[in-house]
Design a protein around this nucleic acid. Structure first.
Lengths: 284, 284
DNA sequence: TGCGCGGTGAAAGATTTCATGCATAGAGTC
DNA sequence: GACTCTATGCATGAAATCTTTCACCGCGCA
């Protein structure tokens, strides 16, 4: 085996195994599984990998042969070699892109630390789950995050309303939500803090809504306007801001909402699934 | 910070397996062999260990049973756990939310590894920077990501067009973009892979557009429809998917676009800044 | 010297793991 | 709408791996 230089993570080298080979959908599932569980797979039997990937055991054997090996054990040996070679990898700071990504990992690390105490998150979940409708605010840079949260939240909550475009209509929509029975508002308040966001927050509190704010710091300008502040740092290593930690926190809050009303959410999820299947929305 | 109950190096913990058990000379040879090749042995069969230790294969089985296991495979499983525990650290730390966030950190870590080679990213930047207009595709769950990218991209590119709502209008918009001079398309293709996304991708390639796809795996269904595939894993530790790694990759691509035409982007950024200041868009 | 006994390896039996033939389902084609 | 062709899972046969049985060897002892 010439096998390229020692550069690259195990993931990348595992990926090279598939290079240029045409794979069937089932084989792609197996490949995906290998990439994700690269280290563990080198211990597993063909049947175990099959279960992990949700395919039949013969498919795993055929996959190994499709990649040019004599059989599954040969593929597994190959994976073991890759795993062994990866343990002694060198480490340096890397280029500026890598540094930015690593800084983002650190942000997530701090978030993980805060999540050790679940009580604040759980309370956010209770507050938001109880609000019908549930308005979600995110303006300008925060608008995609609000939409992202709302997309998934709508699968477990009967009435999620995104407030993501500014202007005079914004206040209308907030008042309509309050009139319809909303009791809480989830707000994404991120740099560079659009002025309009705070106008809405003031309005919301005046209307009696409980404001849960996902923002970039416990001392952000949102703190003055929110009942419950959930901080998650924004990455600043690239030209534009990275919102991975707030995004993660958003999904954690959504999980808390699900936990607050498990039976309810489960029923809605199943309804969505059957509808999606009927409409063949997705591949696979 | 770290776990852990079981203190000590793997070697030491392997020794603990023999603790207080009376061993025959042959078994001692096997034990010695285990300590020396602890990591490798977890891959080997009983016969291979036997050869390594210079004893017969049944002796290895008997050794495993003498240590209180059901048989040699059980002992090997035990060794694997020890080996895994020493390399990967305790995976049982923290609650399920923290585990999900840490899994997301791992996704970012893999992404950082891939970014060691900047050539693919740089090429994506060149391809996309050159396209006027620049269509950005993201349907359903991927729509917020497309909007997020487009929000920032619009600050450095004169004509970014988001394609994020499905239906017949989608094709119209794509054709309009192509007619207006687009040469490339940035597509976010994430689980659960809406069918419609692939219709658009086929159409785009038929129109002659270069397709750059940000997707969750190098072997995702997007790979067949894209000129350039940029993978970033999706987090699956919570009820709904986490898109932090694709989001990060999106901003890395945007940075590459800026790098591809630095003077141009700098001028646009300054124009936006002065406009924002004039309109007092933001706090501070 | 003869006898018993624990330890060991060789070979046979049992079990798990892997590979292949076959029928079916689904996509694409005419 | 019928047909072909690929892909997939099931069932079965083949192979590897593991366990058990059994005979041998060396040692201590009467």
């Amino acid at each position: 085996m010439n096998e390229s230089a020692a550069v690259g993570l195990p993931t990348e080298r595992v990926r090279d195994l598939f290079h240029g080979v045409r794979l069937t959908p089932t084989q792609r599932r197996i490949a995906h599984c290998l990439v994700q569980h690269a280290a563990a797979v080198s211990y597993l039997s063909a049947a175990e990998v099959a279960e992990l990937a949700g395919v039949s055991q013969p498919s795993v054997t055929r996959f190994a042969i499709a990649l040019g090996h004599d059989g599954y054990p040969a593929l597994r040996r190959r994976l073991r070699e890759l795993a062994a070679g990866s343990t002694g990898g060198g480490s340096d700071d890397g280029n500026e892109l890598q540094q930015a990504v690593r800084a983002e990992m650190a942000n997530l690390g701090r978030l993980a630390g805060e999540l050790a105490d679940r009580s604040r998150i759980a309370e956010a979940g209770r507050l938001l789950a109880a609000s019908r409708p549930l308005p979600v605010l995110g303006l300008r840079a925060a608008a995609p995050l609000a939409a992202y949260f709302a997309y998934f939240a709508a699968k477990v909550h009967p009435d999620v309303r995104v407030l993501d475009d500014g202007g005079s209509l914004l206040t209308d929509r907030l008042e309509q939500a309050a009139a319809a029975g909303a009791t809480a508002l989830l707000a994404f308040v991120l740099p560079r803090y659009p002025r309009e966001t705070f106008d809405v927050l003031r309005e919301a509190r005046a209307t009696g809504l409980t404001v849960v704010a996902i923002t970039d710091s416990p001392v952000s300008p949102a703190a003055d306007h929110a009942t419950l502040v959930l901080p998650a740092a924004v990455g600043t290593g690239l030209v534009f801001d990275l919102h991975t930690a707030p995004m993660t926190l958003a999904m954690v809050v959504l999980q808390a909402i699900c936990d607050a009303a498990p039976a309810d959410t489960q029923a809605r999820l199943e309804a969505f699934e059957s509808s999606a299947a009927r409409r063949q929305l997705f591949l696979g």
